[in-house]
Design a protein around this nucleic acid. Structure first.
Length: 626
RNA sequence: GCGCCCGUAGCUCAGCUGGAUAGAGUACUUGGCUACGAACCAAGGGGUCGGGCGUUCGAAUCGCUCCGGGCGCACCA
């Protein structure tokens, strides 16, 4: 077993989590703490299902295990709910679906809930519900408040959501932003739907990329001391590297300065900059590795300092950026800790013992083809270094040993080829790979002036998440990301996002919220009294449509959680806001009749509550005025 | 070449576990502020759901195939 200290042993994790949470994440934690309701009311859909089951038992006793599907028809003339049960039964019973439907209707127990049940179309049964049943959701929303819509679907199972996990080698860019927004919304959604969620960031603080960042910083530092050296074209070019170099210079003067000749001693040198053939590329990488080796040799223990300085700066910068974006992590897990605690070595030994490894050409291979991978994979290179795959196996072993019922990895789409080997490794370790679910987030392609913008971190030409946030705003960013399915390619038109922020649908929803706040202020009553409002006065079609939309909210949460699809919430809220705006323009809420007035305000407040709960999951704020 | 994601209105995208006449935003045209916020609403035109075949009471949805786009196929991370 891995020591419980693993979490602590992440140096970064410990240091970072000691910092006081800022208000964003503190509020966030309160908002999404585990919630255990005493009892959940039987919702309308469940009640209807029960009625249908009884009818089914008398009409077709042989087919009582048929799954009853209830849907909400698009066309309002089709009632509030519809079922295709009769059509499903048609084949087995060898009867006309309409005939079966009629029998089901005849056998349907009498209930105050249903005012009309009729056969329609090819054999649908359409249900029209009692107005009181529909509007009861308004009171539920008022009473349950910020818990309205919560569900018990997850049964408080422990689930880990790992996301972002970007190499701390530079600022987060727009692509990371998408993973961050998706992961944070998903984590909130799962919490809301009854899971016990841990949000985790895997810090790739071991390995070559970090060395490249360190050497890039050091070379800029040398340059600032007048030591003239060619800067690696394949190093990190960004301005932030110069800034870190300047910090080193400011704090430590010329402590890390070495003569150019010493740095270059014995290195092959960079090929001509104009060459782009494979040989030249390979030579550039070799030269970069040689420079890293020279740095380690010339600086000795000070190399570690430079390395750690760069890591600490970039990690802190990323964390700060994410917190400002409303994206909070419970655990920052260090890859280096997996090596330090010996888990990687232990993991490889375990695989060895189970006979899943073999040696070829001096390297140790994992026989992943046994588990359906297209080829075997190296876990330990000829030079003795473990591959990233090896530490990733160890990381997953650790995840499983922490006792999660479910582990969700949110990866960039470019990692999809990685899934089968990780699944294979988990299985090889004797663990249940079905507990792992990988959600792939497709790339965000930025367009600027109608042209694709580069997103390479090394070249330094990228739009950072921070830039995007400051130009577009956090709310609009979060919502823009949430507005499409995560596995869908995203064309992010910067000019559009920046110049036409008023057209972003997030304002449409926030505006509905602000309007309601304004009405409530003018109504000037006591909110608690609304719970006793006579909701039977809500009788016009718009009001009943809104009430029925509110009823959908619970189902929506469950569905979105099952599908790992927070974007469904964004679309739902857009619809709800639309229904509200239509009603608002057609009817006056603050009418003279106090009973009707209160009923309408109650409905408006229920809408407001639903918007709040939905936007909270998406990490979007709800201003009272705009 | 193999694998994964995708193709829906001019553009950006929804479409839940197959359901009834395929939706929204935007753009375009027209109308609505002496009533609670016009960042809003109402109305209109706009479609071979990439093509084809199949599965069935029923297909944008499932299967096969072709066309087109993205990504991946390291002793990199």
């Amino acid at each position: 077993m891995l020591p419980a200290a693993t979490r602590k042993s992440s140096r970064h994790g410990r240091r970072l989590s000691r910092r006081p949470n800022n208000c964003v994440s503190a509020a966030y934690n309160r908002r999404f703490a585990i919630f255990r309701p005493k009892s959940m009311p039987l919702d309308v859909k469940t009640q209807l299902t029960n009625l249908l089951q009884q009818a089914l038992a008398s009409v077709a006793p042989s087919a009582t295990d048929t799954q009853i599907q209830l849907e909400r028809p698009r066309d309002p003339t089709h009632g509030d709910f519809a079922t295709n049960l009769a059509m499903q039964l048609a084949k087995a019973l060898k009867k006309n679906p309409r005939e079966i439907a009629q029998q089901l209707v005849n056998e349907l127990p009498v209930s105050a809930l249903v005012t009309k049940a009729e056969v329609a179309g090819a054999g649908f049964i359409n249900f029209t519900l009692d107005a009181g049943a529909k509007t009861s959701v308004v009171k539920a929303a008022l009473v349950e408040g910020e818990n309205f819509g919560r569900s018990t679907l997850g049964g408080w199972q422990k689930v880990q959501v790992e996301f972002v996990s970007a190499n701390p080698t530079g600022p987060l860019h727009v692509g990371h932003g998408r993973g961050a927004a998706y992961g944070a919304s998903l984590a909130s959604l799962l919490t809301f739907a009854g899971w016990d969620v841990t949000r985790e960031y895997y810090v790739n603080d071991a390995g070559r990329q970090m060395d490249i960042l360190a050497v890039s910083t050091w070379l800029r530092y040398l340059d600032q001391h007048g030591v003239s050296l060619p800067f690696p074209p394949n190093g990190y070019q960004g301005e932030y590297v110069r800034e870190m170099a300047a910090q080193l210079k400011h704090a430590h003067g010329d402590k890390y300065v070495r003569p150019a000749e010493a740095v270059l001693a014995g290195t092959p040198g960079f090929p001509d900059a104009t060459r782009s053939d494979d040989e030249a590329k390979q030579q550039r990488e070799q030269q970069l590795d040689a420079l890293i080796a020279r740095g380690k040799e010339l600086l000795g223990p000070d190399w570690t300092y430079v390395h750690r300085h760069a890591l600490t700066e970039q990690l802190a910068d990323g964390r700060n950026d994410l917190e400002e974006f409303g994206v909070h992590f419970d655990v920052w897990f260090s890859e280096q800790a997996l090596f330090d605690t010996g888990l990687v070595a232990r993991c490889v030994d375990l695989l060895e013992k189970n006979g899943h490894l073999y040696v070829q050409n001096g390297a140790r291979w994992f026989r992943s083809t046994t588990f359906g991978d297209e080829k075997d994979r190296v876990v330990q290179r000829e030079n003795g270094l473990y591959t990233y795959f090896a530490s990733d196996i160890a990381y997953h072993l650790n995840k499983f040993e922490r006792g999660f019922d479910k582990v969700i990895n949110i990866w960039g789409a470019d990692h999809h080829g990685y899934i089968s080997r990780v699944n294979g490794a988990i299985t090889a370790l004797g663990l249940d790979a079905k507990k792992l679910q990988v959600a792939l987030v497709q790339f965000a392609v930025l367009y600027r002036n109608g042209q694709k913008a580069s997103m390479s971190t090394r070249s330094g030409e990228f739009v950072t998440l921070r830039e995007l946030r400051s130009e577009v705003g956090n709310d609009a960013c979060r919502f823009f990301y949430a507005l499409r399915k995560s596995d869908q390619h995203l064309d992010f038109d910067l000019d559009l996002a920046k110049s036409q922020t008023n057209e972003n649908p997030v304002y449409y929803i926030q505006y509905a919220h602000a309007r309601i706040c304004s009405v409530v202020n003018q109504w000037a009553g006591e909110l608690a009294t609304l719970e006793d409002a006579d909701l039977s006065l809500l009788s016009n079609p718009r009001e009943l449509t809104i009430a029925s939309k509110l009823t959908e909210f619970r189902d929506l949460i469950d569905n979105a959680a099952r599908e790992l699809a927070p974007h469904l919430i964004a679309f739902y809220l857009k619809d709800l806001a639309g229904e509200f705006h239509g009603w608002y323009n057609a009817e006056r809420m603050l009418v003279d009749d106090p009973a009707l007035r209160d009923a309408r305000v109650a409905l408006a407040v229920a809408v407001r509550q639903t918007i709040r709960n939905g936007l909270a999951i998406l990490g979007v704020s709800c201003p009272e005025s705009m």
